[in-house]
Amino acid sequence: MIHSFVGKIQKGISHFVHKRHGLNAELDAEDVREGYFAVVAVKNGEIKKFIIGLEYLSDPEFLELLDQAREEYGFIQRGAIAVPCRPQQLQTILDGQR
């Protein structure tokens, strides 16, 4: 199932932040360039937006977060993908691939 989810991401992601978590600011087109997508880390009241390169779609730790997002939120998410983790946890994953 996660491969289906990843396929949907790669086909195109809208440029609007998902409003489920009270994030009502829009991302401008220049904020999300080709080859990138928006992710919002949400946990225990902590919220932070990230613009992430498509290369993270092959990172096992990031894919685990996507699987957790699927379990918690389902596949119906609009705009930025909400992942159920603290922003520091997502930042650690992103820093690990550099």
Rank of each mutant, 00 (worst) to 15 (best):
K11H: 12
Q10P: 02
Q10K: 13
I81E: 00
C85A: 12
N44W: 05
A82Q: 11
R86I: 02
I51M: 04
Q68Y: 04
V39L: 04
G22N: 02
K11G: 05
S4A: 08
Q10L: 15
R98F: 10
V6Y: 03
A41F: 04
S14E: 08
F75N: 12
I52M: 04
L63Y: 05
Q77Y: 08
D95C: 05
T92G: 07
A41S: 11
Q10C: 09
A25C: 07
G53I: 02
N24L: 11
E34M: 06
G35M: 06
A69V: 01
I13E: 08
G74T: 08
K48Y: 03
R86H: 15
R86T: 05
L90Y: 00
Y73A: 07
G79W: 01
Q89F: 06
N44Y: 07
I76E: 08
Q77E: 06
L94Q: 04
A69D: 03
Y73R: 08
A38I: 00
R98M: 13
E46I: 00
K19S: 15
Q68T: 04
Q89P: 01
E61I: 04
S4R: 10
V17M: 09
R20F: 05
Y56Q: 10
V39K: 12
R78P: 00
Q77A: 06
K48E: 11
E71D: 12
K19A: 13
L90A: 03
I51G: 01
K49T: 12
I9L: 00
F75G: 13
V17W: 03
A41G: 05
I13A: 06
Y73I: 00
H15V: 07
M1A: 15
F50V: 01
A69N: 04
G74E: 06
M1V: 09
E30D: 08
L94E: 05
F5Y: 15
F37G: 02
G74C: 09
V83A: 07
I9E: 00
A80H: 01
E71I: 13
K49W: 03
S58Q: 15
H15Y: 05
L94G: 09
V40P: 02
H15K: 10
E72D: 13
F50N: 08
H21K: 10
